[in-house]
Amino acid sequence: MSIQEVRAALWGDEKNPHGHITHVLLDMDGTLIDKYFDDYFWKHLVPQIYSEKQDISFGKATEQILALYKHHEGTLNWTDIDFWSEQLGLDIPALKEQVRHLVDVHPHVEDFLKVLIKRKKQVVLTTNAHYKTIAFKMKKTALGKYFDKVITSVDMGVPKEYEGFWINAQQTLGFNKKDVLFIDDTLEVARSAASYGLRYVLLKNMASSREITTNNSELLSIDNFSELLPE
């Protein structure tokens, strides 16, 4: 499969002038929104504030916090900011507000979303993020108006890395696996979606504007949403 084939399935060609993809499922952090914000927040700001609160070195704070992150990775706790506020004794939502200026949308995301709406595709934000995080990001970026529906790992009862998410997502949205495009920046999540049988799964490279990622040969990938715009 090629990007040109994805575009044809999405926008149409001579055989099918409207394209047969009906649902476009899009991850949020790293895919639509620059992951630099989250990298800075969780790997720098949170350890810094925690080190001050606990009166320990930044290095020691980082070591302790990364161990906690690792322990809860792949669970519903992973993106639950209320859980992390309680675990770390910090007001995570308030800290996010302090650096909200770092939240930014990847290039050509809005161009892509506008065409999806114009072509009457069902556009679904599909994320592991906590609802407070979604509200915070949508308020800052104004992307919320483009989505027909939002489904989260809490709604589905399991993170996107697991088949149960996709089983419940299909039941919730009523899509045909062959008529879905899903885009995510996390390889494990993209693998999960492809394994479940979603026909069109793309990996978004360059999740963070400050970190260059190499193309993944296992799955079809894009660096920029301009690659998916109709010609």
Score class of each variant (00 low, 15 high):
residue 96 K to F: 13
residue 86 E to S: 04
residue 100 R to V: 09
residue 84 W to I: 02
residue 107 P to K: 07
residue 100 R to D: 14
residue 98 Q to S: 00
residue 99 V to S: 02
residue 105 V to I: 13
residue 80 D to K: 08
residue 97 E to N: 12
residue 96 K to S: 10
residue 88 L to C: 09
residue 101 H to V: 05
residue 106 H to F: 12
residue 102 L to M: 12
residue 100 R to E: 15
residue 105 V to C: 05
residue 95 L to G: 08
residue 101 H to K: 11
residue 99 V to Q: 02
residue 96 K to E: 15
residue 93 P to V: 10
residue 105 V to A: 00
residue 92 I to H: 02
residue 80 D to E: 07
residue 93 P to W: 11
residue 106 H to Q: 06
residue 90 L to P: 14
residue 80 D to S: 10
residue 87 Q to P: 00
residue 98 Q to P: 03
residue 84 W to R: 13
residue 85 S to E: 06
residue 94 A to D: 14
residue 103 V to Y: 02
residue 101 H to L: 01
residue 85 S to V: 03
residue 104 D to F: 13
residue 109 V to N: 08
residue 105 V to P: 01
residue 101 H to D: 15
residue 103 V to Q: 02
residue 96 K to I: 03
residue 102 L to E: 15
residue 83 F to H: 12
residue 92 I to Y: 00
residue 98 Q to K: 02
residue 109 V to E: 11
residue 80 D to Y: 01
residue 106 H to R: 12
residue 88 L to P: 14
residue 95 L to N: 05
residue 102 L to R: 15
residue 80 D to P: 14
residue 98 Q to G: 00
residue 106 H to K: 01
residue 93 P to M: 09
residue 101 H to A: 09
residue 108 H to K: 08
residue 81 I to Q: 06
residue 95 L to S: 04
residue 107 P to W: 05
residue 100 R to I: 08
residue 105 V to E: 03
residue 97 E to F: 11
residue 85 S to D: 02
residue 98 Q to H: 12
residue 107 P to M: 04
residue 106 H to P: 00
residue 105 V to H: 03
residue 106 H to D: 02
residue 97 E to R: 14
residue 85 S to K: 04
residue 84 W to P: 13
residue 89 G to K: 06
residue 106 H to A: 08
residue 81 I to K: 05
residue 97 E to W: 11
residue 98 Q to R: 13
residue 90 L to R: 08
residue 83 F to L: 09
residue 91 D to I: 10
residue 90 L to F: 08
residue 85 S to N: 09
residue 86 E to Q: 15
residue 93 P to T: 12
residue 92 I to A: 03
residue 85 S to P: 01
residue 90 L to C: 09
residue 96 K to W: 11
residue 93 P to L: 13
residue 106 H to E: 00
residue 97 E to A: 11
residue 92 I to G: 04
residue 109 V to T: 13
residue 105 V to M: 01
residue 81 I to C: 05
residue 99 V to I: 10
residue 94 A to G: 06
residue 81 I to L: 03
residue 94 A to Y: 12
residue 93 P to N: 10
residue 104 D to A: 15
residue 92 I to S: 05
residue 100 R to N: 08
residue 98 Q to E: 15
residue 80 D to W: 07
residue 100 R to H: 12
residue 98 Q to L: 01
residue 81 I to W: 03
residue 89 G to E: 03
residue 88 L to K: 13
residue 106 H to C: 04
residue 93 P to G: 10
residue 98 Q to N: 02
residue 93 P to K: 10
residue 104 D to P: 11
residue 108 H to Y: 08
residue 94 A to H: 14
residue 104 D to T: 15
residue 90 L to D: 07
residue 103 V to T: 02
residue 109 V to W: 05
residue 80 D to M: 05
residue 101 H to W: 02
residue 84 W to G: 11
residue 92 I to M: 01
residue 81 I to E: 01
residue 93 P to C: 13
residue 89 G to C: 01
residue 90 L to M: 06
residue 102 L to Y: 12
residue 109 V to H: 04
residue 97 E to Y: 14
residue 82 D to H: 09
residue 98 Q to V: 00
residue 82 D to E: 12
residue 103 V to S: 01
residue 90 L to G: 04
residue 82 D to R: 14
residue 86 E to P: 04
residue 103 V to E: 01
